[in-house]
Nucleic acid binder design. Structure first.
Ligand SMILES: [Mn+2]
Ligand SMILES: [Mn+2]
Length: 575
DNA sequence: ACCACTCACTCAGTG
DNA sequence: TAAAAATTCG
DNA sequence: CACTGAGTGAGTCGAATTTTT
């Protein structure tokens, strides 16, 4: 795969991460001092008062995974005396020496051989690591202090606990989320990720009150918990729900993330067959597919009238493709239960084409690509990548418009309001201008090429540069195809512009624009190029079926005369 | 039911 | 959002 | 004594994860 999206690494200062950390802290403190707790302000001030050495050590801890560390094991060139720096840290409230209560967490800081040697009186040698941990925890019930002391000794009394709560708040305020961390800085410093120029909003800050911060941190905590615990019974779910932040008149970001969390909790209740509880959660959610799930739950509960009522309401109120599709599918089922007459309005989608090919170890999609190449057809496995990329290239000027509430930190890959209903309205004049501009096919094609060249490699949520840049030479399958030199080196981007009518591209990206969230996925697996034509091809292996969002896209292709087909692969067992 | 492997080496037991 | 080095287990 | 099989310990490997820049 081509890697020319990147540039060679730059040299960094020895304490680059400390500098970045201070940048982050200062950024937040300057803007949000009023929203911080006393503890968080003290976090900032205590850190600022540390020696450079101690600042480095503390930052190193925060960059690592977990809350517990064994500083004696750290070996950093730029930290001259880690244990001295550590004593400086333990004198503050930033870091606490580990206590016997932390025993369970501490043992992971030692390797298996170390533990075996440290506790020769217990035969640990033959145990697997997980069993070893469990066994140690078990025997530590009898003599916890002694065993903890032995580990703390072994580690030169450098076992510490670092509470990340305060830093989490700073991260949240800086990034607007808790997914991103200090690595964003270094990736940018090294030139591995480059961002387009955009101006940060300064007047209106995204966080206006403490409640928003508390709510988001709690939502994040519960989400993580759900992620790590796949099996939860109803009591546990109830306990989680009792911790949910109130959803009264919250900021839009809380609304969205709380909605997603409510949906996940609702799904767990559905798995436990507690549909009443699930409905109660979905009703508080404004995120897809809450409305659909409520109706499905009502159906599970045999509350047909209520379900019918809500379905009809959804049919008239929602213009979202996936919800309309749900109505189309579910309405006949409910109507039948209620003995209401209805006319079925099914989608007009071309039937599957069946193909028999010899099985390989590769994926079905690659198999089909190989098959196509034998027929002299060039194809790329692009899924949503190509058209989302063309979306980004088309609407680049909207995405990076200088607009209040769009960009809050230097590491965003899309404006913050990209999924808001008001996204276009807020950029109305630019939008009108651009719409006029791309009305002309020549101009539009030129714009796409220009933006591709000008912005190539800049981080953007919709644009997958490395995919656009791919050539058949990057895909091992095409060794047998006879292609001209030019075709061999032609990028997917070029193939697309040369084969796909600009009118088709425009229709598709406008459709994505109409609902950036709902229409970003479900596009076919392959884009196939023939002499003059192209075709979008969804591949289905044995047992695979068209998903709803795929059907919606195929329906769109049908109505807009965009060439597509669904290929059903049957493996030839004789080979 | 168990689970990295190889390699060189020791050592007790056997004929 | 990349790539390589280091660590760890088995 | 020659041979065997069990056990040991060191070193290494691959895969997965974590850390670094
Ligand atoms: Mn697919
Ligand atoms: Mn498929």
């Amino acid at each position: 795969m081509n890697t020319s999206v990147n540039t060679p690494p730059q040299a960094l200062e020895a304490d680059y991460y400390r500098v970045n950390f201070i940048t982050l802290l200062t950024f937040v403190f300057e803007r949000y001092a009023a929203l911080l707790t006393e503890q968080e302000r003290s976090f900032y001030h205590q850190f600022s008062a540390l020696s450079v050495n101690a600042q480095c050590l503390f930052t190193r801890c925060l960059m690592r995974k977990g809350n517990f560390f064994r500083v004696a094991k750290f070996s950093y060139q730029e930290i001259s005396e880690p244990l001295t720096a550590l004593s400086e840290l333990t004198a503050t409230t930033l870091v606490k020496s580990a206590t016997v209560d932390d025993f369970n967490n501490i043992i992971t800081l030692f390797t298996k051989p170390e533990l075996v040697k440290a506790f020769p009186e217990h035969s640990l040698k033959t145990l697997k690591r997980a069993e070893l941990d469990a066994e140690l925890i078990r025997v530590a019930n009898d003599t916890p202090d002694l065993m903890f002391a032995r580990l703390q000794n072994l580690a030169n009394h450098s076992l510490i606990f670092v509470c990340t709560q305060a830093f989490d708040t700073f991260r949240l305020l800086f990034f607007g989320n808790l997914r991103q961390d200090l690595t964003e800085f270094v990736l940018q410093d090294m030139g591995i990720v480059k961002y387009p120029k955009f101006t940060l909003s300064r007047d209106k800050l995204p966080f206006q009150n403490r409640e928003t911060i508390v709510a988001l941190k709690k939502i994040n905590e519960l989400s993580d918990y759900l992620h790590d615990h796949k099996q939860l019974d109803i009591d546990e779910l109830e306990y989680l729900c009792s911790q949910l932040p109130p959803c009264t008149q919250q900021s839009s970001i809380v609304q969205r993330r709380l909605g997603r969390l409510l949906n996940r909790l609702g799904q767990r209740y559905e798995q436990q067959k507690d549909y009443q509880a699930a409905i109660a959660l979905y009703q508080q959610s404004n995120e897809l597919p809450a409305a659909e799930r409520i109706i499905r739950c009502l159906a599970y509960l045999h509350q047909w009238e209520e379900a019918w009522e809500r379905l009809q309401q959804l049919e008239t109120s929602s213009s979202i493709s996936s919800e309309q599709h749900f109505v189309r599918v579910f309405k006949p089922k409910l109507a039948k239960k209620l003995a209401i007459p209805f006319e079925r309005q099914s989608l007009q989608i071309k039937p599957e084409q069946v193909i028999l090919i010899t099985p390989h170890t590769q994926s079905v999609e690659r198999n089909v690509q190989q098959h196509l190449s034998a027929l002299g057809k060039v194809s790329f496995w692009s899924e949503n990548g190509v058209f989302n990329s063309l979306f980004g290239l088309t609407f680049w000027s909207l995405l990076y418009a200088d607009c209040e509430g769009a960009f809050y930190n230097p590491f965003q890959t899309a404006p913050d309001d990209i999924y808001h209903g008001s996204f276009i309205a807020k950029r109305e004049s630019l939008w009108q201008e651009l719409f006029q501009f791309i009305a002309c096919e020549k101009r539009y094609e030129k714009l796409l090429r220009e933006n591709y060249r000008t912005y190539f490699g800049l981080a953007n949520r919709f644009i997958h540069w490395s995919l656009l840049q791919q050539t058949v030479a990057d895909i091992p399958i095409f060794d047998g195809v006879r292609l001209s030199q030019a075709e061999q080196q032609r990028s997917l981007f070029e193939w697309t512009l040369q084969r796909v009518p600009i009118e088709h591209i425009r229709k598709i990206v406008l459709h994505i624009l109409a609902d950036r969230k709902d229409h970003r996925s479900g596009m076919p697996d392959l884009i196939v190029f023939t002499d003059q034509d192209y075709c979008l091809m969804e591949v289905k292996g044995p047992g695979d079926r068209l998903q709803n969002n795929q059907k919606v896209w195929l329906d769109f292709f049908e109505r807009n005369e965009i060439p597509y087909r669904t290929l059903r692969v049957v493996y030839d067992e004789n080979n």
